[in-house]
Design a protein around this nucleic acid. Sequence first.
DNA 1: TTGAAAGCGTTACCAA
DNA 2: TTGGTAACGCTTTCAA
Lengths: 348, 348
Amino acid sequence: MSQSIEQPADGTRDRTPARAVPTSADVARLAGVSRATVSYVLNNTSAVRISEPTRKRVREAAQELGYVPHAAARSLRAGHSRMVLLPAAHVPVGPLYSRFLNDLQWALRRLDYTVVQYGSIGLDPEDAARAWAELRPVAVVSTGEVEVTPAAVDILKRSGVKAVISVGTRPSGGTHSLVLDQPRVGRVAAEHLIATGRRRIGVVVPEEPGLEMFSAPRLEGARTAAGAVGATVVPLPLAYTEESAGELAARWPELGLDAVFGYNDEYAMLLMRALQDAGVDVPGATAVVGADDLLLGRLLRPRLSTVRIDMVLGGELAALVDGAVNGTADPVGGRSLLDSRVIRRESS
Amino acid sequence: MSQSIEQPADGTRDRTPARAVPTSADVARLAGVSRATVSYVLNNTSAVRISEPTRKRVREAAQELGYVPHAAARSLRAGHSRMVLLPAAHVPVGPLYSRFLNDLQWALRRLDYTVVQYGSIGLDPEDAARAWAELRPVAVVSTGEVEVTPAAVDILKRSGVKAVISVGTRPSGGTHSLVLDQPRVGRVAAEHLIATGRRRIGVVVPEEPGLEMFSAPRLEGARTAAGAVGATVVPLPLAYTEESAGELAARWPELGLDAVFGYNDEYAMLLMRALQDAGVDVPGATAVVGADDLLLGRLLRPRLSTVRIDMVLGGELAALVDGAVNGTADPVGGRSLLDSRVIRRESS
DNA sequence: TTGAAAGCGTTACCAA
DNA sequence: TTGGTAACGCTTTCAA
């Protein structure tokens, strides 16, 4: 057994069976003051002056009891919270996106928001919205995998949500939308391939679920670019396994493609290797382009060409959220936050 | 500009300036019943029988107002919540770990917990614990990057937290610990290399911050295995860049190593390529082993040998959390949830 | 079958 | 300088 569970071993188990959690009333009692005074002292309320000895007594009492204020009670009283709800992704996405989400979480934290990840599987958009609304978040930032319909937005707004922001999808009614231009990724890839003389372009469409929201618009973008010059685009379903790549590579001659956009670097690497193993010359017979500019793509031979995506920064999105919450005018309007450009290496 | 911000475009901006969020009292008023009745109807309280016409009136009133119950008020009244707090990682970790966290979040959700990600940067363990305690979570699951000291555990327990679970670290006082056996990863890698005749083993130690919690124990495990048979282990600091790998490869002759454990597949791939570019024969002169069994590792030539880590499943950890919360006896005791074994391919 | 009221832990107003 | 009190939104016991 390479893993173990340890019970608390300090001999204090059940020393205090269901001991009550101390409240400000307990602190007040111990310090011999009123609850109001406790609140004043602990919140450093400047409008009220409390004598130093009293402050000291209160603080000591709080310390002794291990008193910690109750956030829910506080925000109930205050009438608002600083909770930002992030609908959880159904499936782990790529490294770029994970990094983005992590950045976002930290940036929000720095702005003193509490981030709640909330998964809502098998709920339709409106039921999901109702579930989210129960938490009375001040903002909802949907990262696109979860659809936010106009009706859902209405439910949220009516429950007091100040800002509904969707990122990664096309704008949906009533939300502030941060549209990550996925079609552009496919478009610049295709344009690059066309510019280097290719005319029959395969576009990998991952079979793994949860990726359609990225892959479909990328495919569409490639189609746009190809349509403009009479080039052909062929969708290529591909699972992230060596078998699937091998099968696709075996069909390569009959497909008659002279280029392929691999959705991202990982799928592109997988396919490129399969093509090479099947005797297809890269980039001679077929050019290959990935996306994300992963370091690993530079390790293969030929080095993988890629579309570098400059993802919007978590900090900027956090600023947008904060602005929307405060009702401040759009803090990022007009700025280009997502840019994609081809980095040509050796595979194209 | 490849990205745009859209304002709500339905012409309804500020249609209802600061309209109050409906409460159960509003519903009661509209339906012509008491708040109690509203609560009974909406919660399907079985102990009380409400006439069908009344139920209907209440439901319609709720519907019309867009009423959604207030979770904080509810749990304040109930005296407990179902919130699980997950201290946020400071830095994005590998794909395996992201997947694990995602699984965990979903598994907890399925058990009807609400997952709150909470970052606490620059806070010492006790202050962080106090911040967490304000939220009155029912459980805290530390994924290791954030240290949970015994004092922190005490603060949490006193605030009503039922279970403190730390995963990935050595057991810390008073918590249920799920120890992911990182040393074992290094040990099996080293044992494999030793078994195939290698004696001077380099172990990559990533320079990227936030990875020490994994890399240090892996290095230690390798040392243990080597020490047992008089083999040598040399730590190799390496940044995740081609330059760093190139510099390390350039020093290879003077290092005199006949094998290297690359920390994980990504670092191993990076280093293996640099070695090959520097003219080092792999696996002839130097054997290379990674970890994580990434698909991409099979694309290089020679195919990368790796340590396959069967990570504990999110669902199992969620079950442990649930068991700890319910006070049920340890639900996973004695089971081996983390296992590591070498998958030999061509690079060793 | 329904309603009145208490209480969860806070904070803010007003009075002392 | 301090304390009493009401109110935030909800559930639940008790009484009608």
